[in-house]
Design a protein around this nucleic acid. Structure first.
Length: 290
DNA sequence: AATGAAACCTGACAGC
DNA sequence: TGCTGTCAGGTTTCAT
């Protein structure tokens, strides 16, 4: 379910509902080991902490945690990282509502409500990230000092056109595959890669390093526009995706190529073609995309 | 560096 | 009704 717009929608929704809450206790399904961080370690470190803020980094949801008690330290010294995989959901529910099937983790909050991680396909991941206390030293000096969780790549919504061009220079890889590489741009997934390439008029199989500057600038704009539009519509609900409030997104109504195999291109009428590229279903218009 | 396939899993849907 | 095959928003690992 989750690419950047969906993850952002979920993170914002969860943030609004749990910010400032204390984690009273946590529970992990025995069926769901291993997480990236062992559940025993999460069970030890999470209870008692206060949730400072929830936000998105790439396709990850980051929960900033403050020490518990009245030590009054306002330094985030632990981060709970949630990756939704393909089918993960992060829900805020009243404790009285029965646990949905495939619930793998539950954090009970001070208010009595529960933060629930539900994931039928179990591709999702939970982990803890421990930033060093000293934020300033993390920049230039030692590699050892790990700062706050930043993810593997660059944020597509804030990258400049010239940095975007630089990312793909010399790459002998299909541009679609490069767009999906989280070490380059983090957050773009299969839907938004296809939709961006359509808007930029570029065929998915084109070698990334051979695109012209003009084409890359066009793609840069397309990626940002598509992502922003999708965020404003609450993401794409193609099967059962819902946000933290159980609401569906609406961007699937704006898809121009994704999952439209054989249907007429909305620009030229030619049938949309589906190929497999890098193991992923890939959709494009043979006439509009060069 | 890059490509491809397989693995991790369950569920929905189409076709027979 | 029920079986089979295909497909699905993602990542990782291993063999070319």
């Amino acid at each position: 379910m989750p690419e950047l717009p969906e993850v952002e929608t979920v993170a914002n929704g969860v943030n609004q509902r749990v910010r400032g809450e204390t984690i009273r206790s946590v529970w992990f399904s025995s069926k769901r080991e291993p997480f990236k961080t062992p559940s025993s370690e999460m069970a030890e470190l999470l209870p008692g902490r206060r949730i400072d803020r929830v936000y998105r980094v790439g396709k990850h949801i980051v929960v900033d945690l403050l020490p518990g008690g009245r030590a009054a330290k306002r330094t985030v010294d632990l981060q709970w990282i949630v990756h939704l995989g393909m089918t993960g959901r992060l829900l805020v529910s009243a404790a009285a509502i029965p646990l949905p099937p495939h619930t793998h983790a539950v954090a009970t909050l001070g208010s009595g409500r529960e933060l629930r991680f539900v994931d039928p396909r179990r591709f999702g991941r939970l982990a803890l990230h421990k930033p060093t206390a000293d934020e300033n030293s993390s920049e230039g000096s030692g590699r050892k000092a790990q700062g706050r969780f930043r993810g593997p790549g660059t944020e597509p919504l804030s990258i400049t056109g010239s940095d975007f061009i630089e990312l793909f220079r010399g790459r002998k890889q299909a541009i679609k595959s490069a767009l999906l590489n989280q070490k380059l741009l983090q957050g773009v997934g299969n839907i938004y890669a296809d939709e961006s390439l359509f808007r930029a008029g570029i065929r998915p199989r084109r070698m990334a390093g051979r695109l012209t500057r003009a084409e890359l600038l066009s793609l840069h704009s397309a990626v940002q526009e598509v992502l922003k539009e999708a965020i404003s519509l609450g993401g794409s609900s193609v099967s059962d995706y819902v946000d933290a409030n159980g609401e569906k997104g609406f961007f699937q109504l704006r898809h121009r190529v994704y999952l439209r195999t054989g249907e007429p291109c909305l620009t030229c009428g030619a049938p949309i073609r589906r190929i497999v590229l890098g193991g992923r279903g890939t959709h494009y218009c043979t006439r509009c995309q060069k």
